[in-house]
Design a protein around this nucleic acid. Sequence first.
DNA 1: CTGAAAGCGCTTACAG
DNA 2: CTGAAAGCGCTTACAG
Lengths: 340, 340
Amino acid sequence: MAQKSTPRLSEVAKLADVSPGLVSRVLNGDPNLKIRQETRERVLSAIEMLQYTPHASARALRSSLTGLLGFALHHVNDPIYAQMVETAQVAAAAHDYSIVLLNSDELAGRPEAFRELVRGHRVDGLLIQSGFSSDSRALGEMARSVPSLVFNANATPGIRTLRLDDATAAAVATRHLMDLGHTDIAFVGAEGASSDRRHRGHVDALAERGLASHPMISGGWDAESAREATHRYYANGGRATGLVVVTTTSALGVHAGVISSGLTIPDDVSMVSIHDTWFAPHLNPALTVVAMPLAQVGRLAVEILLEQIDGQRDGETILDEPQPFIVERASTAGPRVRAG
Amino acid sequence: MAQKSTPRLSEVAKLADVSPGLVSRVLNGDPNLKIRQETRERVLSAIEMLQYTPHASARALRSSLTGLLGFALHHVNDPIYAQMVETAQVAAAAHDYSIVLLNSDELAGRPEAFRELVRGHRVDGLLIQSGFSSDSRALGEMARSVPSLVFNANATPGIRTLRLDDATAAAVATRHLMDLGHTDIAFVGAEGASSDRRHRGHVDALAERGLASHPMISGGWDAESAREATHRYYANGGRATGLVVVTTTSALGVHAGVISSGLTIPDDVSMVSIHDTWFAPHLNPALTVVAMPLAQVGRLAVEILLEQIDGQRDGETILDEPQPFIVERASTAGPRVRAG
DNA sequence: CTGAAAGCGCTTACAG
DNA sequence: CTGAAAGCGCTTACAG
């Protein structure tokens, strides 16, 4: 059974004894179409009989709509973004769209890549991971060239953005530690707008209760660098008994860094990570986190992007419901009573 | 600066004062084209001047090549596949292809999804995650309908497959435990062809040294189920002091399950996971693993798929170089000397 | 209520 | 060596 050639619209029309245009209209549910029931049924059964499916490229050329949404990110291999990609894929499929994977670094660094994407009409819209500062210029230009939605960027004129309630999440984490009795709490952060917002939420929550903030520990976005930063922090005499970590990937590194410093979690150091993820319950000890609606952000992103395709508009959406909430596991406890 | 309309091929031709056909030929590097150097330069600078990029859909319709490769998988949010997707994306981009994310479950379960993909000419080729038995029928049909490459499936007539050297990896893991002195070693596996091969490699390695195998512990592919299975195993009196785990995701659950059983790693139980991943060094204790060339498999997959698009052929490729090798961390040690 | 016809933007035999 | 022309498979004003 070799690759049998697929039927054309014209063959369906011939079989149903109508014009190709009519078939096209029933296929696309033309609202102005008045058609006799029996004619419609003839068309539908011809489609069914031939297992007809429209040729995607032909349709795309004619309608200048590709049915494709680009998702530009730095690393799929980050559990937070992997989850968003997964839910975005499902949401897109529900609207007959597919997700094309794009590499932010390449797009920001190679002007031709950018040009081929935009001027080559390869996608109808773009989901863009941001929150990094280094590449924001090129990505911003991209966001203005095509209907786009940018994650995590600060509100920016001309750009449609979507993010979670970062400040609240950090505040919830910080308050949890304060409620347990901690007074020396540090934030392990990284570069970029979302880390900045979380840092601010952390500092503000401390201030609410009159506590001073520690300088931010720069741990970066990956486990390895977060681990090193944490280890260095305690090796240099850092005294925080509570740690709020910017995201789950770095939290894994912080977890390892605390332990490799010879300290115990949660006896010596309590830690809370922002974002919940599949591996958090399985660490030893299990990670206390602040959960945010990650699955919903992927779906919402696709829906907003589809609106953008219909008509571009800037504006910021903050997905703050359900509110960030603490998932208490084993990495937090009251501070050890200091002997001296 | 609104969305200015992008230039057409004909405008380039007009500017360069040649025919559209000629521009197309230089653009596509037609090998039979003899053109004067100065004409070529006129064309090239017209392209540059207008920042011309071919319209992807028009090109796709005419050439019946979309420039798109589908990657059908169950969960992007699995570090092993996320890594493969990431490297596949980079490899595809190097050949001017993009990766479209597809959902295996949807494709296997919704015949229309399948039909739209294949009969709608949405992609030039397909990368398919398999190794599961339940869905192999539908995915096999898909693999025969479009140039495809199936990961992890057993060699099958009519299907092009690619996999790693699973049996050797499991054998390396098992031998490592035997070298440390373990004699009671169990395999924590899951359903599907790749787990079956790893299990066989494990059993054979035991047999080489005259050791009996334990019944396989069915832990599934995710952390949660692996954790429960491990806990149950030890609660029911399981006595293995060495565990070989089918993959890294389940290994995290096994790690947690051993600990929640009140046992210590590696004092009571040593464990080795197949596949290395970013989080393995950061567990407490850090995970000893057998590493396989995951990054290369993504790249190789794209290259094989591109060959399939040129001309389909079945056959099996086993990526067995570099050979699976042990990365010793802290989750393995000699067995505790039994008191009685 | 339905059809004929133009055209989306390319590529590629076919001429010359 | 280069151009004119047909056509990939659809959709959508425009007629009637």
